[in-house]
Design a binder for these strands. Structure first.
Lengths: 344, 344
DNA sequence: TTGAAAGCGCTAACAC
DNA sequence: GTGTTAGCGCTTTCAA
């Protein structure tokens, strides 16, 4: 607007602590102290500085701050399967919580051409305040890198014995056990498990929980088939399963998306009635599980609590505190499991 | 391993250009030149530097680089409706493309407590190389901020007349027109539109395209009902619609998720057959549209092309190039629209 | 071609 | 309490 220095308005946020200091008649260091809220500064000076900052529209430059402190205000989220509907909900909750805590989210997609291990170096360059990994595990080499840079890592919804990472997860075994009990009490005799990625902890825990609960009940052993967490697989696996073992009357699925595929195969390809002929249970409770077309009985992951604990871990300082936090899921009964006959 | 300077290994990525310079017997400035690939450096020196960098596992610090250059290697993605299944696919494609171009993604969730305008200042602090906004529009004030800092903004899947932003979008009007034609050719006479957020450009464009195509065909005017892009609304709107106008035989929905709600209401609450009694068309072609339980006829947004163009815009320099890019969608015929009777 | 040197905006001793 | 000063790791003149 005005063309001289007098009324000069620098483009937004090119304003530095020097500018503020000049206007407030204080040193730049003093400005730093009040902005970072760290160190002594007389209340009248503080007031002048705050006013000046306000007036100039001062915004601290996180790049500069990160450089000097050796740590940024950024939390990295590494995700490999953004498409699977569980992850968007998780991401929504995570980003919201992180932003509310005044930090920002750097998102790394570890799908397609990159693995988690590939992206870790890129993450670390940013001197992030923490790393949240969903979906896939971390090699010990990558975990060491993080540790050597003192960056806390939390594995969300993943388990891992060996690393020093924090772990926040739903109690998958317990959930699977509940699923088994529900189906068994509904009268299922011949059960199957359609799993996702075989070597993922999520899959293993769910399988183990289910298989052992069924075993404990003295039923025929569970037929297990595992490959990947997606709809297509749920469909194909179901077809294969029933071709092999036609009298299956209950299917527990590694996640909801697999269950949707199973349900559609059962109803539209195999002509089975659910739940009369076969019962189906999923895991996660993604939004579409509640849609009428599926109305899927499933185990809900306690996402709010999981996210909360995840952020706690990131900022935790006590090295002796437990590093693994397991939260029970919640059985959501809808209409894909046969109810027990009333013994009237 | 060894305890002296000789074999000393600094923790990963604490290694600076100084360290590399010392090992390569060159100046730190020279190292900068080869790393940034910018400026003259003799080939033997370059070789030594590259070897040294390799050997030490040197990684440039993006915070420092960003500070000096006044621009980071980060692209911000602002998203408000991560839950709606269209956005995860978009996000997956976006993040993958951005990472492949050697940049990183800072994700801002503009839902819950924050609007797009709220997050823009936070975005700008990071001196990002560009901002990609999905889901919601930008006030002109926020747009000015971006412009004053010389940060390109692209509105993905949004339109906006007034701002200087780039726009990449699917041709919503055309898609809606195709939907109308398909339904009409299948024999629909009494059509309705169930829209999402009334003042969003996506919604408006789709409504206008549909309404005018129906009008052009000389049919009864379209009944319009709009509120929000979600499943629940699709369900409720459908119930309300048929209570009001029972003879509707074709429903075009603002997006797939609304269509899922409509479908479920029609089938499970209203006892209608789809497509025999009423035809339904969605928009987006999210993954679940292909699932057997829905098998929804819809318009696919050309996401790959949209993402590609978005990144082109971010790096474009020609100020006279057109700033709006509209790409036609693709009609995906599945089973929710009645086929025309064959006039044999 | 190359190195020295001056910052980028900020934090954190360190003296006063 | 406060200002001065020395960097954080990097880019970029500017001389040599």
């Amino acid at each position: 607007m005005s063309e001289n220095d007098a009324g000069q308005i620098k483009p937004f946020s090119q304003i530095t602590q020097h500018d503020v200091a000049r206007l407030a008649n204080a040193s730049q260091a003093a400005v730093s102290r009040v902005i970072a809220n760290n160190g002594y500064v007389a209340s009248d000076v503080r007031q002048r500085i705050e006013d000046a900052a306000e007036q100039l529209g001062y915004r601290p430059n996180p790049l500069a701050r990160g450089l000097t402190k050796g740590q940024s205000n950024i939390i990295a989220v590494v995700m490999a399967d953004i498409i699977n509907p569980f992850y968007p909900i998780a991401l929504d909750a995570l980003t919201d919580a992180i932003q509310r805590s005044g930090r920002e989210v750097l998102l790394f997609n570890a799908a397609h051409h990159q693995t988690v291990d590939d992206v870790i170096p890129a993450v670390l360059k940013y001197r992030v305040a923490g790393i949240i990994i969903t979906t896939a595990l971390l090699s010990s080499k990558a975990a060491e890198m993080c540790e050597s840079m003192n960056v806390p890592v939390v594995l969300l919804s993943r388990h891992s014995q060996r690393s020093e990472s924090f772990v926040v997860r739903c109690d998958n075994q317990l959930g699977a056990t509940q699923a088994a009990q529900l189906m068994i009490s509904g009268g299922c005799k011949r059960l199957a498990y359609i799993g996702g990625r075989p070597n993922s902890s999520t899959n293993t825990d769910r399988r183990v929980g289910f298989v052992s609960a069924v075993e404990k009940a003295g039923l025929a052993p569970v037929t297990v088939i595992e490959e990947i967490f997606d709809y297509r697989w749920g469909m194909d696996a179901t077809a294969a399963l029933f071709a092999d073992v036609p009298d299956i009357d209950g299917v527990f699925c590694g996640d909801d998306v697999i269950a949707f595929g199973a349900l559609d195969c059962l109803r539209f390809k195999l002509g089975k009635r659910v739940p009369q002929d076969v019962s189906v249970v999923g895991f996660d409770d993604v939004p579409s599980a509640a849609w009428s077309a599926y109305d899927l009985t499933t185990i809900r992951q306690p996402l709010e609590l999981m996210v909360e604990k995840t952020l706690e871990f990131i900022t935790s300082t006590d090295p002796r505190a437990p590093r693994v936090h397991t939260i029970p899921g919640e059985l959501i009964r809808r209409s894909t499991v046969r109810e027990p006959l009333l013994k009237a």
